[in-house]
């Protein structure tokens, strides 16, 4: 039986209308998008659209450029998330001791997060300039042959990845550091007394305690990476030779360069479904129902 207080809780009159409005808005929009994706609406042929059923979705499956973009999105998201989490965690474990200027270091870590993506993208474009960039200058000091960071189809995606890692690893650091500071220290001492070496204390006791925080940060980073657009737009515009074109970016090109609105929306729907399935799988792996609940 429900408690009386919950049944007659007057605060529901405040949040229920908002939930209804938001639900209606998103359901209506989603239905409208699906409806349009079932037509062949194109701004080049205004007024001549007709219902085409699943044609746009079938077209997607047979579109090599779309499939390559989807693969690139998966690759970029996986690499960015894994590297940012691993690197962020390593930095947090390293920073978890008292040293001079710790506060300064922590403040400096915030800088990449605060900077707007446009500035970050431009800065990295300058750094990666094959002739005048800092990256190649540093390589030349080490006597290593120069790299065409953004001009080579094999390398450009990884150059954007480097910029993304530079900008978002500090975010991982901040959240994991907060989790670390709120974690109890007695179990770590207990493990030391129980005979664990420092790496065993970290591996068996500390990391499992941080698992939930790491999982949440990984989810946030994965969602952000799938949607990444700004760095690609500023650094490479999907090039060279489409080598950095993610599915998100391809959808933008289809919509605003080719004006093929229906196909662009079909791509958006596919991306959304794909993302949701991937994240729900990830979520159920990270938060098993029988485990930490």
């Amino acid at each position: 039986m429900r408690p009386v207080a919950a049944a007659s809780d007057p605060t529901k009159h405040f949040f229920q209308p908002i939930i209804v409005c938001l639900t209606m808005a998103s359901v209506a929009l989603t239905l409208f998008v699906i409806w349009i994706s079932l037509h062949d609406l194109s701004l080049m042929r205004a007024g001549r659209e007709k219902f085409v059923g699943l044609d746009n979705y079938i077209r997607f499956l047979g579109d090599p450029r779309a499939m390559a973009a989807l693969w690139r999105s998966v690759l970029f998201t996986t690499l960015a998330t894994v590297i940012e989490i691993a690197l962020g965690l390593a930095v947090v474990l390293f920073l978890d001791r008292d040293f001079a200027m710790k506060r300064l270091v922590r403040t400096l870590l915030l800088v990449p997060i605060i900077m707007t993506p446009v500035v970050v993208g431009l800065t990295w474009r300058f750094l990666f300039d094959p002739a005048t960039g800092m990256a190649n200058y540093l390589l030349s000091l080490g006597g290593i042959s120069l790299v065409d960071w953004l001009g080579s189809p094999q390398i450009a995606l990884f150059s954007v990845l480097i910029a993304d890692i530079w900008q978002w690893t500090p975010f991982v650091i901040l959240l994991v550091m907060a989790a670390l500071e709120s974690a109890p220290t007695d179990p770590l001492n207990a493990a030391r007394v129980d005979g664990a070496r420092e790496w065993q204390v970290t591996w068996y006791v500390l990391l499992p305690m941080l698992r939930r925080a790491l999982a949440i940060v990984a989810l946030i980073r994965a969602i952000d990476s799938i949607k990444a657009f700004d760095l690609f737009y500023i650094m490479t515009r999907g090039g060279p030779a489409l080598s950095t074109e993610t599915l998100n970016y391809y959808g933008y090109i289809v919509a605003f360069t080719n004006f093929d609105i229906s196909y662009a929306l079909a791509i958006a729907i596919i991306l959304t479904v794909f993302t949701n399935v991937a994240l729900l799988t990830m979520y159920s792996v990270l938060f098993p129902k029988t485990g930490d609940r």
Binding site: P187, A191, D194
Partner: peptide
């Protein structure tokens, strides 16, 4: 770890996971 002692803490200090 090399002292061969065992300790019981006020906060229990069990490994939560």
């Amino acid at each position: 770890r090399d002292r061969d002692v065992a300790m019981v803490f006020q906060s229990y200090a069990l490994y939560p996971t």
